[in-house]
Each structure stands twice: as structure tokens, then as C-alpha cells.
């Protein structure tokens, strides 16, 4: 979808909720025009888009109101048929983990991966597609499907702090630090996240977190698709793991041969 716009990231929605919903309705109408569903690699986009959809589902008059303007501005309307999924949902529900396991060429055996859900995929529950949002399993199941070991820790569903990075950096980095430190304490070799914004806070700011809170972290942060790609045989160079602030290129050295 070359013409999709920014989803508003929940920020436009704090300024002008109706405009935020209208932007997303426009994106939905583009997908519907092509007869396609929407997949995003970002939990924040997914959460924001699902919220807009559910608001429209629950209030058909509201959708009609948005559509009237959308028709005038773009010549399209949101029919309410498009599905919005996170990439990991597509892998687990549509592609299938057995299918995935069958395509793995480099089993990540011995690699301790901490699955990080963060917030938007799970909360508020009324906007989450996860069956039991307090006990999600999709990320753990994917880790097992690629042969790696799941590391759980108390902060795996807590906030990474990214949304308040600009408003209150100290609190933001403190939240991020707790997430990374918690995973490290449980013996994780890396954290795997389903949200690029979590990635930004946990990875790019890790040196500052270490300095501010006297924490010894140095824990690589992987995107969900990067983990899949490693298991499917891609090289760290192809995945540009060297562009991470906390170097993730040597994770494969941790693999045990089995």
C-alpha cells in the first residue's frame, strides 16, 4: 500500500480523535479497493488501527459520518470488510507454526529469547484480538517453532516507556531499563519484540539507560521478523544487525549444535 498514511500512533488521536479515525478509515478503504487485508509489523499501528475499526463496528452512524467526508475527500469509503493483523498473528494463525518449523534451515537451538509483548497487542482488552490477553502465547510458540528457548520475565507485558520519551525521558528510560534488566536477570541472550517503537527505546537508548540507572545491560533487541529470518537462513549482514545500537550480530555464536 504505497498510499497508506501514518496511523497517527495514538498521538493524533489525543489531539483530534475523529481525524485520527478518519486517517485510518482512509487506509482501510485503500486496502479494500485492492481487495487485500492489512498486515503491520508494529503493535502500535495494529492497536491504533483496531481501535478505529472497533469504534466503527460499534457505531455504524459514526462510520457513515466518517465515510461521507472520506467520499468527498478521496472518492472512497470504508466498507468495514478489511482485516488488520499484526505480522506475528499472520504467521501463527494463517501461515501456521508447523509450516514455519518445516521451513527452518537454521534452528536457533540454545538461544535464550525473551518474548516481549509490551502494551498495544494486549491492552485495552476490548481492542485486543488475543484470546486471553493476560496470557498470550503467540510469541512463545514462535520462539519454540524456530527451535530457540523461551525466557519469561515479570516485565514481558509491561510498557517500554517509548510513548513518554519526549515528555518525561527519565521515567521513559526507567521503564525501558526495568524491561531489559528483568530479561537479563532471567538469562535471556536477547529480547524479541513485536513493536518497532519498543525496539527504539530498548535498543537505541540502552547506553543512556545503563548510564542513568547504573545498570549493566548490553542485551541485544531483535525484531520479530529478524528472528524468523535468522531461522530461515538469512545472514546477520543481510538483516543489518550491525545497525543495532546493541550489537546483535554475534547472537548466532550462542547456538548450540544439535
Amino acid at each position: 500500500m504505497e498510499d497508506a498514511s501514518c496511523c497517527g500512533a495514538g498521538v493524533v488521536q489525543e489531539d483530534n480523535p475523529k481525524l485520527g479515525d478518519a486517517l485510518n478509515a482512509r487506509t482501510f478503504s485503500l486496502a479494500e479497493e485492492q481487495g487485500l487485508d492489512i498486515v503491520t509489523i508494529c503493535s502500535t499501528c495494529q492497536g491504533v488501527m483496531r481501535r478505529a475499526q472497533i469504534k466503527c463496528e460499534n457505531d455504524p452512524d459514526y462510520r457513515a459520518e466518517l465515510n461521507e467526508d472520506l467520499m468527498e475527500d478521496t472518492g472512497r469509503a470504508y466498507q468495514g470488510t478489511v482485516k488488520v493483523k499484526h505480522f506475528y498473528e499472520m504467521i501463527v494463525e494463517d501461515f501456521g507454526l508447523d509450516n514455519l518449523a518445516g521451513k527452518v534451515t537454521r534452528k536457533l537451538t540454545g538461544l535464550n529469547i525473551a518474548p516481549y509483548y509490551g502494551c498495544y497487542a494486549l491492552r485495552p482488552h476490548e481492542f485486543s484480538d488475543v484470546k486471553i490477553p493476560d496470557r498470550p502465547t503467540a510469541l512463545e510458540e514462535t520462539i519454540e517453532a524456530v527451535g530457540a528457548t523461551v525466557v519469561t520475565w515479570p516485565e514481558m507485558q509491561k510498557c517500554c516507556g517509548f510513548p513518554i520519551l519526549m515528555a518525561n525521558k527519565h521515567n521513559s528510560l526507567h521503564l525501558a531499563g526495568n524491561v531489559v534488566e528483568g530479561a537479563k536477570k532471567q538469562g535471556a541472550a536477547c529480547i524479541m519484540t513485536a513493536c518497532p517503537l519498543c525496539h527504539l527505546n530498548l535498543d537505541s537508548y540502552q547506553p543512556e539507560i545503563e548510564k542513568t540507572f547504573a545498570m549493566d545491560l548490553n542485551l541485544p533487541i531483535l525484531h520479530y521478523p529478524q528472528m524468523l529470518a535468522l531461522a530461515l537462513g538469512a545472514t546477520p549482514e543481510e538483516l543489518k544487525l550491525d545497525t543495532h545500537i546493541v550489537q546483535a550480530g554475534n547472537l548466532l555464536e550462542n547456538l548450540s549444535s544439535s
Binding site: E2, D3, A4, S5, N16, K18, L19, A22, L23, R26, D69, L70, D73, T74
Partner: peptide
């Protein structure tokens, strides 16, 4: 984005939507 003018039109409704 290619259809950028659409976004501009939508943002022109900013006050109306408030």
C-alpha cells in the same frame, strides 16, 4: 505518499472535527 493531497484535504477538517 502518492496521494498526499488527500491527507491535506482531510486535515483541513481539523477544526470542524473538534
Amino acid at each position: 505518499i502518492k496521494k498526499f493531497p488527500e491527507i491535506r484535504k482531510m486535515f483541513s477538517r481539523f477544526k470542524e472535527y473538534l
